[in-house]
């Protein structure tokens, strides 16, 4: 069952050069029981996309087009005021980066939990606290102690887990994690990802993990979506995409990942720099400047995101087999059909 349906989402930011798209025509499904990893370099629009799921695009941004349909709620982008407030936290749980301080420093975690409950008009606050303690215990923390603590008394990994408690305590069905492992050491990373997987399975959630760390995400995600220059350029079942990347950018991204076992030199950096709002190509493919496979069509026609076999999608003019073979062919193939 599809829990969240993002359709043709375009988000623009106001710059000195006018309104420029940070996310352009993105479509994405989050299904119940599936963890989707959304990877991309910084500035690729992945965090903007995640915030748009809660209709919380920050100033000076605006949603220019598209919809975010959440099961049982409708289009989140059409909500406002109290309705929107109830959906945030109630249906959609958002977890901040571990390095961020997502708690009020002056109140204990428990009191902020009560604030959350009252804001969402929870009748049985005692049960809410009990559920929060239970969640905390399951994540390997002492629930009683943690609820009596202030934020500054908790470690980064604990804060991250508390963020997950807050996202889930109201029984949200959708869990969105923004860079959940950034700023954590390797062991805490693994622990947090483990916990995400566990709570995800136990509660049959639809989980979206935003990250630039394709290695970390490959441990737990079911699906992988790759963003570049505000576009989703490829997505599909995780293992399939990792084994057979059919978009030149995905291929380069995987190739740039160093592995713990194996030669570090085997990792190849992607030449060039990721585009930002003002430098991203207005016509043609946004990746063509850094693409070793680029053909003439890439310069003037933007490749559409086309559905292929086995639940995969890609946006590229070059034949999948050519990308898979790894050797740029003669610039002849034009069409974008996988």
């Amino acid at each position: 069952m599809t829990e969240v349906q993002v359709r043709d989402l375009t988000i623009e930011y106001q710059t000195s050069a006018g309104w420029l798209p940070a996310v352009a025509g993105a479509s994405l499904d989050l299904r119940a029981g599936e963890i989707t990893g959304l990877v991309g370099e910084s500035g690729s629009g992945k965090s903007t996309l995640a915030l748009a799921l809660l209709n919380a695009v920050p100033e000076p941004g605006r949603v220019a087009a598209g919809s975010v349909e959440v099961a049982g709620v409708g289009d989140v982008l059409s909500l406002s005021g109290k309705q929107l407030r109830k959906v945030r936290g109630g249906e959609l749980g958002y977890v901040f980066q571990a390095s961020q301080n997502s708690m009020n420093p002056l109140k204990t975690i428990g009191k902020q939990l009560l604030d959350l409950g009252r804001s969402h008009e929870v009748k049985d606050l005692r049960a809410l606290i009990a559920r929060a303690k239970d969640l905390a215990n399951r994540m390997g923390m002492d629930g009683d102690r943690v609820l009596d603590s202030y934020q500054h008394q908790l470690s980064g990994g604990m804060r991250q887990r508390i963020g997950i408690v807050f996202a889930l305590v109201l029984n949200a069905k959708v869990l969105i994690l923004d860079e959940p492992t950034t700023a954590l050491d390797m062991l805490s990373q693994a622990a947090v990802l483990d916990i995400v997987r566990t709570v995800h399975d136990e509660n049959q959630l639809s989980t979206l993990i935003i990250t630039h760390d394709i290695g970390a995400i490959s441990e737990i995600a079911d699906r992988l979506a790759v963003m570049y220059g505000g576009r989703i350029v490829e997505d599909g079942p995780l293992l399939d995409v990792l084994r057979r990347p059919t978009h030149p950018y995905t291929r380069a991204l995987i190739g740039a990942t160093a592995r713990i076992t194996g030669d570090v030199d085997a990792a190849r950096a992607l030449p060039g720099r990721p585009p930002d709002l003002t430098t991203v190509a207005r016509v043609g493919c946004v990746f063509r400047d850094r693409c070793p496979f680029a053909v003439t069509a890439c310069a003037d026609t933007e490749p559409p995101l086309v559905v292929g076999e086995a639940g995969r999608r890609r946006a590229c003019h070059v034949e999948p087999s050519t990308v898979l073979s790894g050797t740029p062919g003669t610039p002849a193939a034009v069409g974008g059909q996988p």
Partner: peptide
């Protein structure tokens, strides 16, 4: 501009809170 204010917004806390 602090993180926890955005966080409280995304958690749907009441405006008064």
């Amino acid at each position: 501009g602090d993180d926890f204010i955005l966080a409280s917004e995304l958690r749907g806390l009441a405006p008064v809170t």
